[in-house]
Design a protein around this nucleic acid. Structure first.
Length: 659
DNA sequence: GTAGGGTTAG
């Protein structure tokens, strides 16, 4: 009678009983459900147990309790849900039969119909669900019941990733003249192919449903899969007062997920201000915010989030995702000890926790620590995934651990059944290339089962820059500009290779290519946080209020560095801007932004470490400069560039000049 | 009392 589909691997309510139930309500329900002497109807107690995810208790109460017979119809929907949660299809069909016998089906009890439809769907028994829906008399069933029934089944089809079935049901609904509601859209919109979403949006608007908070929230999150613009538009068009916590979380994640970290932090500060209308951030908000802070290196905002967590969310250590986001933030903002401490304090960790920490140590050049962590993780029975392997391989690469990198790369398939992706190949090309094994890196690219992308060729090109290899560099360059013709960084790299090898005619040629293609060098910028404010510096930037003093200090330091290194570290800048006479004030050019940022830090702080975030890679001159200045001035500079952290102290850098 | 909206790691 019952046709079984393979059971779906869905999170049943049994494993996530409290997902959508507010804590206070749970406590009240728990007390109520456990009170055997309660005067409340037993059917209400069944419902409470189901809601709490105590499905066995719910069924036991039904079976062993002393319900004044016959079983009350009010308990049946909850019972069906508990049967489904316990994967008991026979229980579901028994109640189905009971409901039919009592005349509650096919359409008089909307709640039972809905519970049966969704339970059948969850259990993969879609034919049973369809049959029940087909039996409902269109003419004599209340419209609201029909709507709910369709919604239940559409949601079931969505759970099984059957978008065609969802839309077939929706069409049927419309043909039959059954009105749809917000819930219909909430199940349909996430299941829709991207091109259909705007049509559903228009339909929602015509039906007057687009203004509902839940529908708008849903549209925001679905639009967010394809960039932040449309998501932002929906959010902006909502009346400010109807934006709830979910609206803010959805629009925040739309921006943080699409790399618009600055906009995400902007939204967060609006949310905390009057625009928030009293909406308080929750763990979900903070995960997005911390992710954006990590991305930007926005230390003070992130530390503000940390304070908020410690003050208002005392149980945050048991929230694995939130802790992972905080670990990632600490690690990417140069606070490794804090990352390690939080990791130690977490009662339960996920592979993400391990990966965030492994990647963090890798970025700081602590390859050995990263490898030890990885080994501990494996010994604790956690199987590495692709992301963990990227973290490990890049840690090997930053630390120059050639043998280890090779070993783990080959272990991917043999020990962990992971097929290397483009990112793993990029790490390996980087590792081999930096180690000077350019031919081996080139051969690895030839052996790849998929075509190399810009990142892979770019890694080879970057290695050729380090080792001044024109021949392989030119080959990598040809490939890389074929795949990514507008990525300026690669042209700059090639031009720098020619500069380093004295082929100035070729430099001119590459510059001409850039001009013809309308490509401009991405401006380098660095920033330092001081007293809660961000101080941003571009190369040759004179806009900072302290610019005069900053430039004077840089120039003085350049002289000192030149003397201390016997002229091996030359002065980078110090030329006058053309057209300026000596008499006008300090319009010096030729200084990279990190020098300005560090000088600002030295002028405004005493003794403490100066943390600088930079968008591009640190150049060789600045690297030597910062090493020497750290010794001269007895200060520590922590610089995060596009690929890793450099910690300059006592005249040396943590990257051991390997970057 | 039924169907349903937001989250992390390279």
């Amino acid at each position: 009678m019952v046709e079984h589909l393979p059971p779906p691997h869905l999170p049943m309510t049994a494993t996530e009983p409290l997902k959508s139930v507010p804590t206070a309500a749970v406590a009240a329900a728990a007390a109520f459900a456990d009170d055997a002497n309660s005067t409340e109807p037993w059917s209400a107690r069944v419902r409470s147990l189901t809601r709490l995810g105590r499905h066995r208790d719910a069924l036991a109460l039904l079976r062993d309790g002393d319900p004044s017979p016959p079983p009350h119809a009010l308990a049946l929907p909850a019972t069906v849900i508990s049967c489904a949660a316990l994967s008991l299809p026979s229980g579901v069909s028994q109640i189905h039969a009971l409901g039919s016998k009592r005349g509650l089906l096919p359409s008089s009890d909307a709640y039972l119909v809905s519970a049966l439809l969704s339970s059948y769907s969850r259990l993969g028994l879609l034919p049973c669900a369809h049959q029940l829906l087909d039996e409902m008399p269109l003419a004599s069933t209340p419209p609201a019941t029909l709507c709910t029934a369709f919604n239940s089944l559409i949601s079931g089809c969505a759970l099984h990733a059957l978008p065609a079935a969802c839309f077939a049901l929706f069409r049927r609904m419309r043909v039959a003249g059954v009105r749809f509601d917000a819930v219909t859209l909430l199940t349909l919109v996430p299941a829709a192919p991207p091109s259909v979403v705007p049509q559903l949006h228009a339909l929602a608007a015509r039906a007057g449903l687009a203004a509902e908070t839940s529908v708008a929230n849903c549209l925001i999150s679905v639009y967010a899969r394809r960039g932040a613009a449309l998501a932002r538009q929906v959010f902006d068009e909502m009346p400010a007062a109807s934006r709830d916590l979910v609206s803010w979380n959805a629009v925040l994640s739309a921006h943080s997920q699409n790399g618009l970290a600055v906009d995400a932090l902007d939204l967060y500060s609006r949310m905390r201000g009057c625009d928030g209308h009293g909406v308080e951030p929750d763990a979900v908000t903070l995960v997005s915010v911390l992710s954006s802070c990590a991305h930007l290196g926005a230390r003070s905002v992130g530390l503000g989030v940390e304070r908020y967590m410690r003050g208002k969310l005392p149980g945050f250590r048991t929230n694995v995702q939130l802790c992972n986001a905080l670990i990632n933030f600490y690690a990417r903002c140069g606070c490794l000890p804090q990352a390690q401490q939080l990791f130690n304090e977490m009662p339960r960790k996920s592979i993400v926790s391990w990966t965030a920490l492994i990647t963090g140590y890798g970025m700081h050049g602590h390859g050995e620590v990263a490898i030890n962590l990885f080994q501990t993780m494996v010994s604790e029975g956690i199987r590495p995934d692709n992301v963990a392997m990227v973290g490990l391989l890049s840690a090997c690469s930053h630390a120059g651990m050639y043998d280890e990198g090779r070993k783990y790369f080959s272990a991917m398939e043999s020990a962990y059944q992971l097929r290397p992706t483009l990112e793993h190949y990029t790490c390996m090309v980087d590792l081999l290339g930096r180690a000077g094994r350019l031919k081996e890196a080139r051969e690895l690219i030839s052996s790849m089962p998929m075509p190399a992308d810009g990142a892979v060729w770019g890694a080879l090109l970057g290695a050729c820059k380090i080792h001044k290899n024109v021949e392989i560099g030119e080959e990598a360059f040809e490939h890389v500009i074929e795949v990514e013709p507008t990525n300026v960084g690669y042209y700059v790299l090639m031009a720098n290779i020619y500069t380093d090898t004295g082929q100035l005619d070729c430099v001119v040629r590459v510059r001409a290519m850039m001009r013809e293609r309308g490509l401009k060098k991405e401006p380098g910028c660095s920033y330092v946080e001081h007293k809660g404010r961000v101080h941003l510096f571009m190369a040759d930037d004179h806009s900072h209020p302290q610019a005069k003093r900053i430039y004077e200090l840089v120039l003085k330091l350049e002289q000192m560095v030149k003397e201390k290194t016997d002229g091996t570290v030359g002065i980078q800048g110090g030329r006058m801007i053309e057209g300026h006479s000596e008499k006008t004030a300090v319009p010096l050019i030729g200084f990279h932004s990190e020098k300005l940022a560090v000088a600002f830090g030295m002028l405004n702080t005493v003794g403490s470490e100066i943390a600088v975030i930079k968008n591009l890679r640190v150049c060789g001159n600045c690297h030597s400069f910062l090493k020497t200045v750290s010794a001269i001035a007895n200060r520590v500079f922590l610089v995060r560039d596009a690929s890793r952290f450099h910690r300059f102290e006592d005249g040396a850098c943590s990257c051991k000049d390997y970057w």
